[in-house]
């Protein structure tokens, strides 16, 4: 395993393009900012500094103030922290549920697979936002409800990916070789299937994470996600939309934060998957 990781890392570094390097750098910075937000932000999250709304950037206020006179720059740190944390929880939860069910369905097959696959088909027949809106109507917006709901929706997508991967791997002869040796379920799962699914799953995790960020931000933007006084990036955009009319760029900053994360992850995943992309015949070009 160690040796394999070493070769993989060497190949990874060799294929790294400038774009991919830049994306990795941006993501590390963002992650650092999110983790260290309380130490990096100049002011506390809810601290009201001036009486004016949408004060222009200037002394002490790097990006100006928001509609209540709070420091936008500081609020960005906390917003980023909340968005990253919530999205990360969503992605992790979706993966735990989706992957275990997906691999189980692939390995066990039969009725279990049928039942759960049909259920997922029905859930995917729902546009995700509809499911979210319905549950939010019933339970009202709160962070745990949001996390569980979006993770649930996302887990259906993860399930499909994991099941498809599992089904591809399960039919390989090396799985059959292990089965005929008499190996039990646990060994098959951990030693034979999972190591072969890790790479595509990592890519999928990236995609799911960006999806969670976009989704939670959209809900917050609509006023259905994170509720003030807490603020994630989506809430920050919503709160500061009026700023555009005052001629400031206040909603653009949080929006750019979202874009920086999602664009970087998507570019990385794209670069990663393209390493093995096919090319079409020259005679058609």
């Amino acid at each position: 395993m160690v040796e394999h990781a070493a070769t993989a890392l060497r190949e990874f570094r060799r294929d790294l393009t400038p774009t991919a390097t830049l994306c990795l750098l941006i993501l590390s910075l963002i992650l650092l900012a999110a983790i260290l937000a309380p130490f990096l932000a100049p002011y506390r999250e809810g601290e009201i500094l001036t009486t004016g709304s949408f004060v222009s950037p200037g002394e002490g206020l790097l990006l100006g103030s928001d509609y209540l006179g709070r420091d936008l720059f500081s609020r960005l740190f906390y917003g980023l922290r909340l968005t990253v944390a919530v999205s990360f929880m969503i992605a992790i939860l979706a993966f735990l549920v989706g992957c275990s069910l997906g691999f189980l369905a692939a390995v066990l097959g039969g009725r279990f697979d049928m039942l759960i696959s049909r259920l997922v088909d029905a859930l995917i027949a729902f546009p995700a936002i509809m499911l979210a809106l319905i549950v939010l109507t019933a339970l009202g917006p709160s962070i745990p409800v949001l996390v569980v709901t979006i993770a649930f929706i996302d887990s259906t997508r993860v399930f499909r990916v994991a099941r498809a991967l599992g089904v591809d791997i399960v039919v390989q002869d090396y799985i059959e070789a292990a089965t005929v040796r008499g190996e039990r379920f646990g060994w098959l799962m951990w030693h034979e299937i999972l190591p072969n699914a890790l790479v595509p799953l990592a890519a999928e995790f990236g995609i799911r994470f960006t999806y969670a960020i976009l989704f939670i931000s959209a809900l917050s933007f609509l006023g259905l996600g994170v509720q003030p006084p807490q603020a994630d990036l989506g809430v920050l955009i919503r709160e500061n939309m009026q700023g555009l009319l005052y001629g400031t760029f206040s909603p653009i900053y949080p929006a750019l934060c979202i874009a920086a994360i999602t664009v970087s992850i998507n570019l990385l995943v794209d670069w990663y998957l393209r390493r093995n992309d096919a090319s079409s015949p020259e005679d058609l070009q």
Binding site: H4, Y174, E176, V180, G182, H191, P195
Partner: peptide
């Protein structure tokens, strides 16, 4: 039984897919 399994082994046609690519 494990011993019965041990006594009969099978070798597959496609050598490259019969070995787990992630195992040394």
């Amino acid at each position: 039984t494990r011993d019965e399994l041990r006594e009969i082994q099978i070798v597959f046609q496609m050598a490259d897919v019969a070995l787990n690519p992630r195992h040394v």
